[in-house]
Amino acid sequence: MRVLAALSGGVDSAVAAARAVDAGHDVVGVHMALSRSRAEFRTGSRGCCSIEDAGDARRAADVLGIPYYVWDLSERFEETVVADFLSEYQAGRTPNPCVRCNEHIKFEALMDKALALGFDAVCTGHYAQVRIAADGTRSLHRSADLAKDQSYVLAVMGRERLARSMFPLGDVRTKDEVRGEAATRGLSVSAKPDSYDICFVADGDTRGFLRDRLGERPGPVVDVEGRVVGEHQGAYGFTVGQRKGLGLARPADDGRPRYVVDVSAATNTVVVGPAELLTVRAVHGQDAVWLADDGLDGRPFDCHAQLRAHGAPVPAIVTRTGGPGVRVEVPAGVRGVAAGQSVVLYDEDRVLGQATITGTDR
């Protein structure tokens, strides 16, 4: 097959591309330039898509003996991922930009261009597995290395794009195995630190980034009785479940810690309360994307739900609602669920589908 390998400049994508070459595919490497000021993007091990990363990707392609190109997707990235990030926080929700990047950039813009150029598949260094049944049906599964599993942020791709995706690192047991393989292959990125946090927030100060882009909007922090207990400089800087950085001038009457239990963009108000108010029993989601047919007949079905990128899956009962919606009941309850995040549904390690959280029931 003709395979387009997305080379981020990190060790994972380099080894994934190497494995695609070993499998006998005709591989071409592409680095996605996502920042309008790439020279400023990497701070220590944070960030990605900098000039440094483009150079590392080129050197990896040279070692592998494959053609290498840079595709400028910075405008698309700004108009989709960054714009969505800002608008979601401004609306009082907490987005996951990695999900949006996979949806709009890696498995839409990149894949659409690859297919238009005659490639059969796109290969990335994500930690997840694609399994093919006897009838040719493909399914998405968790990585063998559960600590690195990225199926949560990949669930948004849908069936058509899954059919054109390759994740050669899905069977890897540890990141050390990947680094060792990279060193053996002579790839200079073998010891390169992982990028982490939000790639376009180079210094890791999300609240500062939002303040610079959205401006200060002072407003009240209130308790559940409506009493003002503090002041904020922008409700967009808070998320449900947050405890640190609240700046409360008035302690709780019982002396217990308080958490953000609601963020109202309409009134520019942050509501704080006791920990028990964070527990929800049901989650509502919209814009559902399905990779399996479970519940297609409209009847509720049992599965496990993951509500944060690094959260633990919990037993759930799922019902498809009108349109692309779902209701996910969590009988045991789950804490700190924020609107804007993804709820991803699993049958053991198989991804069934995902939806964007729009609300919860306590």
Rank of each mutant, 00 (worst) to 15 (best):
W71G: 13
D149F: 05
A116Y: 06
G118C: 11
I66C: 07
R76I: 09
G125Y: 06
E75Q: 14
L64Y: 08
D72E: 03
A133E: 12
F77M: 09
A134P: 01
V70S: 02
A147Y: 01
L117Q: 15
V70Q: 11
D62R: 13
G92P: 03
L115M: 15
A134Y: 00
E103C: 04
S50P: 08
A61G: 11
V122D: 01
D53V: 09
V122W: 00
D53S: 14
D120F: 06
S143E: 04
G92Q: 14
S87V: 05
A155M: 01
L117P: 00
S50Y: 10
R59A: 15
R93Y: 05
D53Y: 07
H141S: 12
K148I: 01
E79M: 03
Y69G: 10
A54T: 14
F41K: 07
P97M: 04
A121W: 10
L162K: 06
S143H: 06
R138E: 03
L154H: 05
A109L: 02
A114E: 13
D135F: 04
F107D: 02
A57F: 10
Q90N: 12
V81A: 09
M157A: 08
M157Y: 04
V82F: 04
L140A: 06
K113L: 12
D145M: 12
L117F: 10
D84C: 05
S74K: 06
A61E: 08
I66M: 11
H104D: 03
D145Q: 03
A128D: 04
H126W: 05
G47T: 02
I105E: 01
Y68L: 04
Y89P: 00
V82T: 13
R161S: 08
R42P: 01
L64A: 07
D135V: 05
A60T: 15
C101Q: 03
A109S: 09
C98H: 08
R42I: 06
T94F: 05
E79K: 09
G136N: 09
A133K: 00
H141T: 11
S74N: 14
F107P: 01
D135E: 09
V82P: 03
A83W: 02
L162Y: 11
G92T: 12
D53L: 02
L162W: 09
Q129S: 13
D135C: 04
V130A: 06
R93A: 13
V70P: 01
G47D: 04
I105R: 10
L86H: 08
S151T: 12
C98I: 11
T43L: 13
K106R: 14
E103H: 15
Y127K: 00
G47K: 05
R42Q: 12
R159Y: 11
A83N: 07
S151E: 08
E79P: 00
L140F: 06
A121D: 09
D56W: 03
V82D: 04
C49M: 10
V156T: 14
V70G: 03
A114C: 10
F41Y: 04
G92K: 10
D62T: 15
A54W: 00
E160C: 00
F119N: 05
S45R: 11
L115G: 02
G55R: 02
G158Q: 12
I132F: 00
R42G: 09
F119G: 07
L64F: 04
R93Q: 15
R59D: 15
A147F: 03
C123A: 14
T124M: 02
A144R: 12
K106C: 07
F41R: 14
H141N: 15
